[in-house]
Measured scan of single mutants.
Amino acid sequence: NKFNKEMRNAYWEILLLPNLNEQQKRAFIRSLYDDPSQSANLLAEAKKLNDAQA
């Protein structure tokens, strides 16, 4: 399933972002589970926040 693969990839990438705190990571991951079809958008948002907090 395409969404499962995308979601899994986004999950691990979000977990490994160094500048997000645990609460932020949990919020993004919760959103991933709520709507896996938004994986790419959520990952992009997480990366943007990660860069902003660098």
Rank of each mutant, 00 (worst) to 15 (best):
A10R: 03
P18G: 08
P36T: 06
N19H: 13
K5H: 03
N21M: 14
N4P: 15
A44D: 10
R26I: 05
N19E: 07
E22L: 08
A46W: 01
L20A: 01
L49D: 05
S37W: 11
S37E: 07
M7G: 01
N4V: 03
A40Y: 14
L49W: 12
L43F: 04
E6R: 02
Q23A: 13
Q53L: 13
N19V: 06
N9E: 11
A10D: 01
I29G: 03
L16R: 15
K2P: 04
E45P: 00
D51Q: 15
R26H: 04
K47P: 00
Y11I: 13
K25F: 06
A54L: 06
E6G: 01
D35T: 12
N4T: 06
L15R: 14
Q24Y: 06
D34V: 12
K47L: 06
Q38W: 09
Q53W: 14
S37N: 07
L49V: 07
L43R: 14
K25P: 00
P18T: 05
K47D: 02
L17W: 03
D34R: 14
A52Q: 07
K47M: 05
E22N: 10
K5N: 03
A46R: 00
L20V: 10
E22M: 10
L42R: 11
R26D: 02
A54E: 11
N1G: 11
L32D: 00
E13A: 15
Q53F: 11
A54I: 10
N50Q: 05
Q53H: 12
N4Q: 06
K25M: 06
A10Y: 02
A27H: 07
N19T: 07
F3I: 14
L20K: 00
A54Q: 10
N9T: 10
Q23T: 10
A46I: 02
N50F: 01
D51T: 12
M7A: 14
A40E: 06
A52M: 09
M7E: 07
D51S: 11
A40I: 08
E6A: 04
A10W: 03
K48I: 09
E22I: 08
D51R: 15
D35E: 07
E45L: 13
R26P: 00
S31W: 11
I14R: 00
W12T: 06
D35Q: 15
L17S: 09
F28I: 03
S31F: 10
N41P: 04
F28D: 00
N9A: 15
N41G: 09
L15F: 13
A10F: 04
A52D: 12
K25T: 07
F28W: 07
N50V: 02
K48H: 10
N19Y: 12
S31H: 09
L49N: 06
R8W: 15
R30Y: 13
S37V: 06
L20D: 00
A44S: 11
R26S: 03
D34W: 10
L42F: 11
N21F: 15
A27S: 12
R30L: 07
N4I: 07
L32Y: 01
Y11Q: 05
A46S: 08
L49Y: 12
A52F: 12
E13W: 15
N1P: 11
P18D: 06
L43T: 07
E13D: 05
Q38S: 11
Q24A: 09
L49P: 00
P18Q: 07
Q53K: 02
A44E: 06
A46P: 00
S31P: 03
Q38I: 09
A10E: 01
E6Q: 05
S37H: 06
S31K: 11
N21T: 09
Q38P: 02
L42A: 06
L49K: 10
A52I: 12
K5E: 09
Q53I: 13
E45I: 14
P18K: 13
I29K: 03
L32R: 00
D34P: 03
L20N: 00
L32I: 05
D51E: 15
R8V: 04
K47V: 10
L43A: 10
K48D: 07
L49Q: 05
Q38Y: 08
A44P: 02
W12K: 15
D51V: 13
Q38D: 08
N21I: 13
A44G: 09
K25Y: 04
Y33G: 02
Y11E: 14
K47G: 03
K2R: 09
F3E: 13
D34I: 15
Y11T: 06
A54G: 11
F28S: 02
R8S: 06
E6H: 03
L42E: 02
D34L: 13
A46Q: 00
I29D: 00
S37F: 09
M7V: 08
F28M: 05
N4K: 03
I14A: 01
A40L: 13
N1Q: 04
A46D: 00
A52V: 08
N41D: 07
L42D: 01
M7H: 03
N9M: 14
Q53G: 11
Q24D: 06
N19K: 08
E22F: 14
R8K: 07
A44F: 15
N50S: 06
A40V: 12
K25A: 04
S39Y: 15
R30G: 03
A46F: 01
L20Q: 00
N1R: 02
A44T: 12
K2D: 15
L32E: 00
Q38F: 10
W12P: 00
F3S: 08
L49T: 12
L43G: 04
K2V: 05
Q53P: 07
N19I: 05
N50G: 06
N41Q: 09
P36R: 06
L32T: 01
Q53M: 10
N1L: 03
Q38E: 10
I29M: 04
F28A: 03
A27M: 14
M7R: 01
F3V: 09
N41H: 11
L16W: 10
A27V: 12
M7I: 07
R26E: 01
K25Q: 04
A27Q: 09
N9K: 15
F28Q: 01
N4D: 14
Y33W: 08
N21Q: 10
L15E: 02
D34N: 10
K2N: 13
L20E: 00
A44Y: 14
K48A: 07
F28T: 02
D51L: 15
A10P: 00
S39N: 04
S39F: 15
Q24W: 11
A40R: 08
A54S: 09
N1F: 01
Q24L: 07
A27D: 03
L20W: 00
K48W: 15
R8L: 12
Y11V: 13
W12I: 04
Q53R: 02
N50I: 02
S31M: 08
R8D: 04
A52G: 09
Y11D: 00
Y11G: 02
A27R: 10
A27F: 15
E6Y: 03
E13M: 15
L43K: 10
D35V: 11
A52P: 06
N21D: 09
E45R: 15
P36G: 06
A27P: 03
Y11A: 08
Y33N: 02
Q24M: 07
L32H: 00
P18I: 07
D34G: 12
E13T: 15
L43S: 12
N19F: 09
M7F: 15
A52S: 11
L49R: 07
L16Y: 13
K48L: 13
K25S: 03
A44I: 10
N50P: 01
K2E: 15
N21R: 08
E22V: 10
I29W: 10
N41I: 13
Q24T: 05
L16P: 02
Q23M: 11
